[in-house]
């Protein structure tokens, strides 16, 4: 992906003033995982959203401020949970390592 920076997707061209973005990249052995699914679970463990990772293993959510769990499903791997805190006007970057 041209111009992609390390971590999540480029935020160029997005007005993030009112957004609480959670984004990142899924990797296995240092390589991006393109066919993973990342689920965003709220503080009560309830499903809020899910996205497939891009060709470069990246994902992004427009969340609300607060604490979230990212659950990543990938072929031939156990689900991986990561906790992340989102804040309005900020981009929380998460790197998910698949075993």
């Amino acid at each position: 992906m041209c111009g992609a920076k390390k971590g999540g997707v480029s935020t160029e061209g997005l007005d993030l003033t009112d957004e609480a973005v959670v984004q990142g990249v899924v990797t296995r052995d240092g390589e991006p995982v393109a066919n993973a699914y990342v689920r965003l679970l709220d503080g009560g463990g309830e499903f809020t959203a899910e996205v497939p990772t891009s060709a470069t293993g990246q994902f992004r959510f427009f969340a609300a401020p607060g604490t979230w769990t990212l659950r990543t499903l990938a072929p031939k791997a156990e689900p991986v949970d990561r906790t992340v805190v989102a804040a309005r006007g900020e981009v929380a970057e998460v790197e998910v390592l698949i075993g």
């Binding site: 957004e19 965003l40 709220d42 309830e46 809020t48 899910e50 996205v51 427009f62 609300a64």
Partner: peptide, 18 residues
């Protein structure tokens, strides 16, 4: 919808701009 959309905290699923 998700609890945050139901309660009014979010207007759309969290993978879409709000």
């Amino acid at each position: 919808r998700s609890p945050d959309e139901y309660s009014g905290k979010l207007l759309a699923p969290a993978h879409l701009p709000q």
